[in-house]
Computed example of a mutant assay.
Amino acid sequence: MSKGFDCATPLTAKTAALFFDQRYKFVCRYLAPSGSWKRLTANEAVICSNAGLWIVSVFERGATNALAGAAQGKDDGALALKYAKEVGQPEGTVIYAAVDTDVSSSHYNAIEEYLRSFDEQIQGYELGIYGEYEICEEMRIRGVVNKLWQTYAWSRGAKISDPNVYQYENDVIENGIGIDRDESNGDAGGWKVGMVIQQKSAILDIDVANTIINTWISPAWNDADRAQQAVEVDGDVEASVKLEEQKSYCNWLANQLRKATGQPFQ
C-alpha cells in the first residue's frame, strides 16, 4: 500500500517536501474554479510533482451534487474537464467525482445518472468515485466506475475489496495543515505534470462497435421510446420512469462503445 493524504489547503514547496520526506507518495487535491481557497493550481501541481508527490484529482462542487442527477452531472463534468486542463492534468488519468454524504438505496439511480453524465463530459480522462462503502460498491456493481476512493466515514465499518484509494482517518494536523489520511493500492490514477500516458490501442474495431449500436442498442432504445409514449398515454408514471432509465442506459452503452473506438458521443 502507498501512503497518501488529501487536503483542502494548497501545498507550498516547503510542505510538499516535508510530506515527501515523511514517505507520503501522493496527495489528493481539488479541481475547482479560480478564486476557490482549496483549488489546485497549475503552479501547485508543478510544486507537488517536483517534490516527488503524485497528484490524485477530485472534483466536488457540492457535497450532495451527485444526488441531483444527470443535468447536474453534465454541468459538473464540464467544469471538471475545464479545471483539469487548466492545471495540466494529463489525459488518461483519473478524475474522482465526490459523493461526500451518506446515501441510501433511494439515491442510487440519481447518482448513477449523475456519474454517467459526468463521465460523458470528461472525455480523455477516466471517471472515479469518492464516497462511502455503499455507493462505491453499488456503482462498481452497476458498471459505472472502476476507480474507487472509499472513505471510512458513513461506511459503518464496511470496506470494499481492493479500493484504489481508502481514506481511513479524518481531521489530522500534520506539517501545520489539516489533512485526511489515505492509502492506495498503487492504481489510483494519479499524475505528475508533464507525464505522458501510453494510450492503449483500441481492442474493438469501429465497424464492429457501430454494428452493435445499430443492430441492437438503437433498436432497443427505439422500442423503449415507443413503449414509454404508450404508457404515458395511459398515465403510468412509474412505468414511464423505468423506460426512461432503460433509454438512458442504452445511450450510455452506445457512447461507451463510441468512446472505446475514438468516436464522439451522441
Rank of each mutant, 00 (worst) to 15 (best):
S155T: 09
G157I: 03
D162A: 15
D162M: 08
D162P: 04
Q167G: 12
E169L: 14
E169V: 08
D171Y: 12
V172P: 09
E174T: 09
E174I: 09
N175E: 14
G176M: 10
G178F: 00
R181Y: 03
R181V: 02
R181T: 02
E183S: 11
D187E: 07
G190Y: 02
W191V: 03
V193R: 04
V193Q: 03
G194W: 05
I197Y: 09
S201K: 15
A202M: 13
D205K: 11
D207Y: 15
A209Q: 07
N210T: 01
N210S: 01
T211H: 14
T211V: 05
I217Q: 03
I217R: 03
S218C: 01
S218D: 07
P219C: 06
A220M: 11
W221R: 10
W221S: 07
D223S: 13
A224C: 11
R226L: 13
A227S: 13
Q228P: 00
A230R: 12
V231R: 02
V231H: 05
V231A: 04
E232A: 04
D236R: 11
V237W: 04
V237L: 10
E238V: 14
A239N: 05
K242V: 04
L243T: 03
E244M: 11
E245P: 00
S248Q: 15
N255T: 13
L257P: 04
R258H: 09
R258G: 09
K259P: 00
K259F: 07
A260I: 08
T261I: 07
Q263H: 02
P264D: 09
Q266E: 10
Q266V: 11
